[in-house]
């Protein structure tokens, strides 16, 4: 799915956090949005991922506005996956059940192969408090991927992980993006730039630089 953002502006009360953002995100790309805290990267990610309405400007998904896609729940379910800094796995469900919940009965047959690819196939019956932080985040990534989304948005997905697990997550994103899933990741971790093929550098609510590999 191609995403085009045009003239995005956003205010929180009187704080001007995005100051006219224009960008294109190509299908199958691994895009990293980097910048210091307060640079506006999370706000940009939230707008691109449909979680936040911009104060002005527009976002086109395959040349259509969000409203033209109809039901937003259905749009998210069909096209978007989310990974947050905290895993938000449902604590009373096993890792496998968490992934199955997102699939809503579809793609049931793909849960085990996906868990195997992510290296958590032997943890399917465990609960989130019985596995490590890296394994939880892998389960959260599996949950975001199970519906074959066109695009996965991740906000500081390695914020709670050690370096080894963080690199593992980036490698997964790079691997899946090569198979045509688009990843847009907001992070202040410089290591992500070694894996992403497009890096959007933000500062004070504007895009300072865009590097493409």
């Amino acid at each position: 799915m191609k995403i085009i953002a045009k003239g995005l502006e956003h205010y929180y009360a009187h704080e001007h956090v995005l100051r006219g953002i224009d960008l294109n995100i190509e299908p199958g790309s691994f895009t990293a949005i980097v910048g210091e805290s307060g640079s506006g990267k999370t706000t940009l990610l939230s707008i691109l991922s449909t979680l936040l309405q911009p104060s002005s400007g527009e976002v086109l998904y395959d040349a259509k506005l969000l409203a033209q896609w109809g039901n937003i729940d259905l749009f998210r379910r069909r096209h978007i996956g989310f990974v947050f800094q905290f895993h938000y796995l449902i604590s009373y469900l096993t890792l496998r059940e968490n992934i199955a919940l997102a699939s809503l009965g579809e793609f049931q047959g793909e849960i085990d192969p996906l868990m195997e690819r992510l290296g958590i196939d032997r943890l399917g019956r465990r609960y989130s408090d019985e596995v490590s932080g890296g394994e939880r985040q892998r389960a959260a990534i599996a949950r975001s991927l199970i519906n074959h989304p066109s695009i996965v948005f991740a906000d500081e997905p390695t914020g709670n992980l050690d370096t080894k697990n963080a690199l593992g997550v980036y490698e997964l994103f790079a691997e899946f993006s090569r198979q045509n899933t688009t990843f847009v990741v907001a992070s202040h971790d410089k290591k992500i730039t070694e894996f992403a093929d497009t890096i959007i550098e933000m500062e004070d609510g504007i895009v300072k630089n865009i590097f493409t590999r």
Binding site: L51, R76, R78, I80, Y88, L101, N147
Partner: peptide, 14 residues
Amino acid sequence: KGEFGIMRSIGLSS
């Protein structure tokens, strides 16, 4: 809240 927020984000209807 986290549980229901994540449900909304993965597209579960109200």
